[in-house]
Design a protein around this nucleic acid. Structure first.
Length: 298
DNA sequence: CTCGATCCCTGGACGC
DNA sequence: TGCGTCCAGGGATCGA
């Protein structure tokens, strides 16, 4: 599940591998996850990948102007969201095509940039000019670029639960389930705590924890839980450093209490019930029972 | 503003 | 060996 560190890792790899490469032609497979397949086919050929950046959980492939030099197509880019299972990698043309390869961009040097995504939870879009600018504006601050003041402003006044806030891409861009849980564990904050219910020091602790964890994860090339691979096909190593995520029933690294898993904001949330105390006056009535029976229906 | 529910999709785990 | 079922989960969307 590519989040900020994984996408950053892929972006760096692609920057090294394909920046400067020209896209000669494009072939599409299934396109139901692509905003505008026709634009992909008509706009990409002839353009050069100027550089590859990360924007939240998106890869942003900045493209050169079209050779026909149309008006207003400056600032053109290909946005790629990897969803849960997406992978974007350059391969030699001679290499067999993996199953679920949905986009193939032929490069000018005998390689292809291939997008593979079994579940198609990803997203691809060709955007330019104002449309691109507007799309990017929808997202919140990059957690590695935001200062403590901005971070606090975005968290402290909110009534939503902190887990939901961390996952909300319009609040912070790039944080997903793994790094939300890891940073909350490190800051000793319960995932159901309200943003507005956090003390000043807690917000600061969370800010520091989140940045440290993200930076460390980037150094280790991200977390490979199921099948994440970077642009070179190499798995990350940060999963070996997880303290909460995926550790239900295992002892907390601080106090040995068994890590618990609950659903918060619709997502599995792993936390230490001893280190991360539940919100005080939060307390509804029955719930666990209702949860287990709500499922089926397909 | 915030919530839960639902849908998208496939592979993997599990039960029989 | 092969079904059927459940689950995972980021994000969009809709109704409460």
């Amino acid at each position: 599940m590519p989040e900020l560190p994984e996408v950053e890792t892929v972006a760096r790899g692609l920057q090294r591998e394909i920046s400067g490469s020209k896209i000669v032609s494009v072939a599409l497979g299934k396109t139901d996850f692509i905003d505008n397949p026709e634009a992909i086919e008509s706009e990409l050929p002839g353009r050069t990948v100027l550089r590859v950046e990360r924007y939240g959980k998106f890869l942003l492939l900045r493209l050169s102007a079209n050779e026909q030099a149309k008006q207003g197509d400056e600032q053109a880019a290909l946005l790629v969201h990897l969803g849960m299972t997406g992978a974007l990698m350059p391969k030699k043309v001679s290499e067999p095509q993996a199953k679920h390869t949905h986009v193939v961009m032929m490069l000018g040097d005998g390689r292809e940039l291939r997008y593979v995504d079994p579940r198609r939870f990803g997203r691809i879009a060709y955007l330019a000019g104002d449309v691109l600018a507007r799309e990017l504006q929808r997202f919140g601050a990059d957690p590695l670029e935001a200062g403590l003041q901005e971070f606090t402003r975005r968290i402290h006044g909110r009534k939503a639960r902190i887990k939901a806030l961390l996952l909300d891409q319009s609040v912070l861009r790039g944080v997903g389930n793994i790094y939300a849980d890891e940073s909350l564990w490190k800051a000793k904050i319960h995932p159901a705590q309200l943003g507005a219910g956090l003390k000043r020091e807690q917000v600061e602790q969370l800010y520091v924890a989140l940045q440290r964890i993200l930076k460390r994860a980037i150094l280790l090339r991200g977390s490979s839980i199921s099948d994440f691979l970077d642009a070179e096909g190499v798995p990350g190593e940060y999963q070996q450093h997880h303290r909460a995520y995926g550790r239900e029933g295992k002892p907390c690294f601080r106090c040995k209490t068994a890590i618990r898993r609950v659903i918060v904001a619709g997502r599995s949330s792993y936390f230490c019930p001893s280190c991360q105390r539940a919100p005080r006056r939060q307390k509804k009535k029955g719930k666990t029972k209702a949860q287990r029976k709500r499922s089926k229906r397909g």
